[in-house]
C-alpha cells in the first residue's frame, strides 16, 4: 500500500477526534472545520513523511496544532483585533447551550495559546503529559506548569459565577 493510501485510510476513523481537538483549539465550529480541512490537506501532502511506527493520531494532532498556530500568527499579523475577537468567540454554537458551557467556552477562548493547547491535548483529548510534551516539543515540566496555570484560570472564571 502506498503511504498516501495508508494515511487516507487511517485518518478516516480519526476524523471525529480531529474535529473535537480542532473545536477545542479554534473555538467556533466553522473555524474548526476549516482547520480540519487544512490539516487533512497538509497530512496528505506529507503522507510520505509518516512512518507506521509513529501513531497516526499523534502525528496528525501535531499537524493540527501547528496549523492552528500558523493560523493564529497569520491572523495576528493581519489584524490586531484578534485578541478581542477571540475572547468573544464562543465554542458552543448552539444558542440553547447552558450558560455554564458558554462561560467555560469563553474562558477557554481567552486563554493564551500555550495554555489552550495543553488543555485541548490533555484534558479534552486525553493525551498523557509525556505525549503532549512530545507533540509540543517541550519538557514535561512545561506541560504540567502550563496546565496548572490554565486550570487555575479556568476555575477562577467558573468559580466567579458559582
Amino acid at each position: 500500500m502506498d503511504p498516501s493510501q495508508a494515511v487516507r485510510e487511517g485518518l478516516l476513523p480519526l476524523l471525529p477526534r480531529l474535529r473535537r481537538l480542532a473545536r477545542a483549539l479554534a473555538g467556533q465550529a466553522t473555524d474548526a472545520d476549516d482547520l480540519v480541512q487544512m490539516v487533512l490537506e497538509r497530512a496528505l501532502t506529507r503522507a510520505a513523511q509518516w512512518r507506521p511506527d509513529a501513531t497516526l493520531d499523534k502525528w496528525v494532532f501535531a499537524i493540527a496544532r501547528n496549523a492552528w498556530r500558523d493560523e493564529l500568527r497569520a491572523r495576528n499579523r493581519s489584524q490586531r483585533l484578534f485578541a478581542e475577537e477571540e475572547a468573544g468567540a464562543t465554542t458552543a454554537d448552539a444558542a440553547s447551550a447552558p450558560a455554564q458551557k458558554l462561560e467555560l467556552a469563553a474562558a477557554l477562548a481567552a486563554l493564551p495559546p500555550d495554555h489552550r493547547e495543553v488543555v485541548a491535548l490533555v484534558l479534552v483529548e486525553g493525551l498523557s503529559y509525556s505525549e503532549a510534551a512530545d507533540l509540543l516539543q517541550v519538557p514535561v515540566g512545561t506541560v504540567t506548569s502550563r496546565l496548572a496555570r490554565a486550570r487555575a484560570t479556568l476555575q477562577a472564571h467558573l468559580g466567579k459565577d458559582a
Partner: peptide, 10 residues
C-alpha cells in the same frame, strides 16, 4: 465540564 463541552463533537 470540558469533556461535556467537546465530546458531543464526536
Amino acid at each position: 465540564q470540558l469533556r461535556a463541552l467537546f465530546d458531543p463533537v464526536l
